[in-house]
Design a protein around this nucleic acid. Structure first.
Lengths: 215, 215
DNA sequence: ACCTGAACACCGTTCAAGT
DNA sequence: ACCTGAACACCGTTCAAGT
């Protein structure tokens, strides 16, 4: 057993059963030992969570490190866009990762390296350091490829049929009106009428276009 | 005891001691009963969390419901901006709320009502239903007044002194360079060199300006 | 109708003891 | 140096029993 093996086992458990499946006892089982043995290799569960978050961002750094597109001048936008969408691809393989990122208080060195590269691309595009700083905040978690979907307007009514919508129309006229028209325009997407990837890219492009205008 | 009293006590506990202080046993104590009595009024802890999330959004709806600014045509942006910044003010009084929102799977009626109003303002501004839909996704949690701060670039080095930065310069040249220049420009803000409110408004305006151009 | 005591199945973690 | 058994202090929750 080693710290490395423990963390790899932890990632495996979270990938397969979600983050709630990751308990110290389950982790020990996966690694073939008793729960108490883990504490010889990691200080506590928080350190395990720090470790698997870091592992995912390292995976992202590996992927984006192999990207080779020009980032000088106007090319910054394509380069940044590509970087962020690549990070997103990795994240989609570890759906638990955003939640763990958000619960971390200490900062991962890997996250710092990721953002360092991002700033580098923006500098290539002619951003001032001040604008880079604002840009990091404006992107927020979107820089790493995910956004907080507070609620999916589609899920609200998607589960029930159209008749449920009628009942809500009195209380939620604008939302129901919006839903009915968007669903009508795109009747094909019955299951989840919002394409998460499309919406992610729409929001990303709004921000990138806005930043481009400011540089 | 009543469901109402239980939820109010739960909000009080979370406000004072954070969401981790909110346990069923602590909640029972606050309400002057045994833990098991709670289960007569709420099904389980999840329902308590649903309830306090809903209570906060109701508080937001109360506040934004009293806003009265013109939203026709170009006025939409001011109206939406005002609405979102008002929601943010409420959220700042309940710092635990964003975390609870994110953990909800069922959708709160109050959140639906909030977004219904938001769509109403955008329709006043001449948005198509399709653009409203994209806009809701682009804003994401920012619509309710918060963003996921994945990491605060300032916190990274803010704790240590400038010498720690020197050590990181080799590995994080762009980030350290950015930090040194931004900190130099604004030496007053030693404690948290990023003004969260300013950064929130910057990101919000990038998105609102982008949407305005698309309407 | 409303509350409770005792108990269960789970956590993360400590600590003294093993090899 | 590495692992473990027994135990502790906490969870959320059930259920039969009280008033």
């Amino acid at each position: 057993m080693s710290r490395e093996r423990v963390l790899r086992a932890a990632v495996r458990i979270a990938d397969e059963g979600g983050i709630r499946a990751l308990t110290m006892r389950r982790l020990a089982e996966e690694v073939g030992a008793e729960a108490m043995s883990l504490y010889y290799h990691v200080a506590n569960k928080e350190e395990v969570l720090d470790g698997i978050a870091d592992a995912v961002v390292e995976e992202i750094n590996d992927v984006v490190g192999r990207i080779d597109v020009p980032s000088q001048g106007a090319g910054w936008k394509t380069a940044v866009r590509r970087r962020i969408l690549s990070a997103r691809e990795v994240l989609l393989r570890h759906p638990w990762a955003p939640g763990v990122f958000e619960s971390r208080t200490t900062m991962s060195p890997a996250v710092l390296r990721y953002h360092d590269g991002l700033v580098g691309l923006m500098r290539d595009g002619g951003f001032s350091n001040d604008l880079c700083h604002h840009a990091l905040h404006a992107l927020g978690s979107r820089a790493l490829g995910f956004t907080q979907e507070l609620f999916d307007p589609g899920d609200a009514a998607g589960g029930d049929d159209a008749s449920a919508l009628e009942g809500m129309a009195a209380e939620l006229p604008h939302l129901v009106g919006m839903f009915m028209e968007v669903a009508h325009d795109d009747p094909g997407s019955t299951l989840g009428w919002c394409d998460d990837q499309t919406e992610f890219e729409f929001g990303l492009d709004v921000i990138l276009d806005g930043l481009d205008r400011l540089r």
